[in-house]
């Protein structure tokens, strides 16, 4: 099964060039049953990555471009009065899919954002007093522009917390960029990519990831990291217990992808930035490397 994961990673990397590390994180996020937030400036390949992920996982997916005039019903669906039967008929919205691509989620109003985030948390949609189950697996891959961009509604901390990871692609290195320029846009190739995993295999993989064993010393390490973030003067809001739980969940997936059935601090460190950074409220925004500084200050041993 692990070869399939490797294959998956290499397939995605053939489209998202030169970003294997980020790709691995994204895959780990999916294996850990988490929602993914991709944050970057426009034109960095966010959507490409999201689309590729959706495609190669063989999931049934819907893409929603978030705009500021969107209403919750546009995502969740709503009851529409049927003249023939004289009753309200529920029309499911785009959220009823296995993978929802929420493009530029911070362009929509907080109301719409929160409607989606409820669905992410509960895995179900309640409308008109009826609760409807979303399909399993259910993922949301959201992309967003950095908050400094004009005309956006930043996601509040409590809602950012629902994303297992926040990753950003960053500028490609010169070599990759040259290749990119040579080949042109790779987005067209996505449809031609082979589907590597079907949803039953994905569930199996997710199960395998959660079976990764965690020793006490690693648990202690994670606890120390969380405690450090809470005690640190640079951090206003430290890592919540849900945050440290997410950290272990993601690290387990990473460990599984690295071919181990036990967790090591190395795995924790690898996913730490992606899992933790968007959950911390820093006192000083310019201090970009806070996750890294926590990692460097907390002793692995002990």
């Amino acid at each position: 099964m692990r070869d399939r994961v490797e294959q998956l990673v290499s397939v995605i990397s053939s489209v998202v060039l030169g970003k294997e590390e980020v790709v691995r994180l994204a895959v780990a996020c999916m294996l850990a049953r988490g929602h993914l937030l991709i944050e970057d400036l426009p034109g960095m390949g966010k959507t490409t990555l999201a689309q590729t992920l959706a495609h190669v996982f063989g999931l049934d997916y819907q893409r929603v471009q978030f705009t500021s005039d969107m209403l919750p019903a546009d995502i969740l669906g709503g009851a529409i009065f049927d003249q023939q039967t004289s009753s309200f008929v529920y029309h499911p919205g785009p959220v009823f899919t296995q993978l929802l691509l929420a493009d530029e989620i911070n362009r929509s109003t907080p109301k719409t954002q929160s409607a989606l985030l409820e669905a992410m948390e509960e895995g179900q949609v309640s409308s008109e007093g009826v609760t409807r189950q979303l399909p399993a697996p259910f993922f949301v891959i959201a992309t967003q522009n950095p908050v400094s961009q004009f005309g956006t509604f930043p996601l509040p901390e409590s809602q950012l917390d629902r994303f297992l990871m926040r990753i950003s692609l960053g500028y490609p290195d010169p070599e990759t960029e040259k290749g990119l320029l040579k080949h042109g846009d790779t987005r067209r190739d996505i449809e031609q990519l082979s589907v590597c995993i079907d949803s039953s295999l994905l569930i199996e993989l997710q199960e395998a990831c959660s079976q990764v064993v965690v020793s006490d010393s690693v648990l202690n390490y994670v606890q120390r990291l969380a405690q450090f973030s809470r005690d640190s003067d640079d951090v206003v809001l430290g890592l919540s217990p849900r945050g440290s739980l997410a950290l272990i969940q993601a690290a387990k997936a990473w460990a599984y992808m690295s071919g181990r059935d036990y967790l090591m601090p190395d795995d924790v460190q690898k996913v730490f930035g992606a899992v933790v950074e968007h959950r911390l409220l820093l006192r000083n925004e310019s201090e970009s490397g806070s996750a890294r500084s926590i990692l460097s200050q907390v002793d692995v041993l002990g």
Partner: peptide, 28 residues
């Protein structure tokens, strides 16, 4: 873990740069 600390101290006396950083895992 104590062994690791001892070895790190030993390596540090060979060259200061070889000391283990706090956030460095044993593997790395």
């Amino acid at each position: 873990d104590q062994e690791v600390i001892t070895v790190s101290a030993g390596l540090c006396s060979v060259a200061p740069l070889l000391q283990r950083e706090a956030g460095e895992t044993v593997t790395s």
